[in-house]
């Protein structure tokens, strides 16, 4: 007999819902997204799931599998205990639309607040690999929003208005540390994007499927840059002397 697993999937919409159990046959190497597709194809054709690449490249298929925020296309069934039902729930921090699909449009609105790349005037387009390496880590982000989902500032404290979330600190780190970028986003980080709300508890780093070291490499360095400009009397004085323009955006 073929091995089977039970998936306990959330079915419902913004108004409410419940979990429903589905029996799914397991094939070698199968991932949770395959199981969801099986359910769509055979048991519940209207089960709403987002996905695109099925290869961990697009960041569409985020959900919470057994309580852990994951890409369903990269979560292998054989890594999960199949003696109990596997729960698959939508991301908790975003409003539900239907089944596993949530409304992530807030993220796109936050992104608009971040000033785009602007080269320093008169730069030469020669860039050293040594400068590129650090930034490329941030550019790996596939916008799965799992970090946004797990971050307790959003998940538990709903600070959507004051706080941009780890994904956008990663994006800003990529801009701020871009060797040719001429803008300064420290004021924005402190005041509008609320980097101070992050208490560096690293859940974002734990869930990032791209293994971006979000807290250590993006958030903490940005916090240090904010300190340079707003909290450290010595560097502030030094900047004044040198006549750095603090063009806050």
């Amino acid at each position: 007999m073929m091995k089977e697993a039970t998936l306990r999937v959330f079915r419902g919409d913004s108004k409410g819902g419940q979990t429903v159990d589905y029996r799914v046959p397991i094939a070698p190497g199968m991932v949770v997204l395959d199981a969801l597709h099986y359910i769509q194809g055979h048991l519940a054709p209207d089960l709403a799931v987002r996905w695109n690449c099925k290869a961990g490249k697009c960041g569409s298929c985020s959900a919470e599998v057994n309580g852990r925020p994951r890409l369903t296309c990269k979560t292998r069934m054989d890594d999960l205990p199949v003696d109990q039902p596997i729960t698959v729930l939508p991301m908790k921090s975003f409003p539900r639309i239907k089944d596993l699909v949530t409304d992530v449009s807030w993220n796109y609105r936050v992104n608009r607040k971040i000033p785009a790349f602007e080269p320093r005037p008169g730069v030469e387009w020669k860039i050293s690999q040594l400068d590129v390496d650090r930034v490329q880590e941030f550019r790996k982000c596939i916008e799965c929003f799992l970090c946004q989902n797990v971050c307790h500032v959003l998940r538990e404290h709903d600070k959507m208005e004051q706080f941009a979330g780890p994904r956008f600190f990663v994006r800003i780190a990529g801009l701020e540390m871009h060797p040719l970028d001429g803008r300064d986003r420290a004021g924005l980080l402190k005041d509008q994007l609320g980097i101070g709300f992050c208490n560096i508890t690293k859940c974002c780093t734990e869930v990032c499927p791209e293994e971006i070291r979000i807290t250590d490499n993006a958030i903490i360095p940005l916090k240090e840059r904010v300190v340079d400009e707003f909290y450290d009397p010595l560097t502030m004085l030094f900047r004044k002397f040198r006549g750095d323009k603090v063009q806050s955006v």
Partner: peptide, 25 residues
């Protein structure tokens, strides 16, 4: 913050309800 303030106790685990959170702001 995690162990003593339970802010959060662990990832994707609930915190004590109804607390004012201001982080490091």
């Amino acid at each position: 913050y995690r162990a003593f303030f339970l802010d959060p106790p662990a990832c994707a685990v609930g915190e004590p309800a109804n607390r004012k959170y201001r982080g490091e702001t």
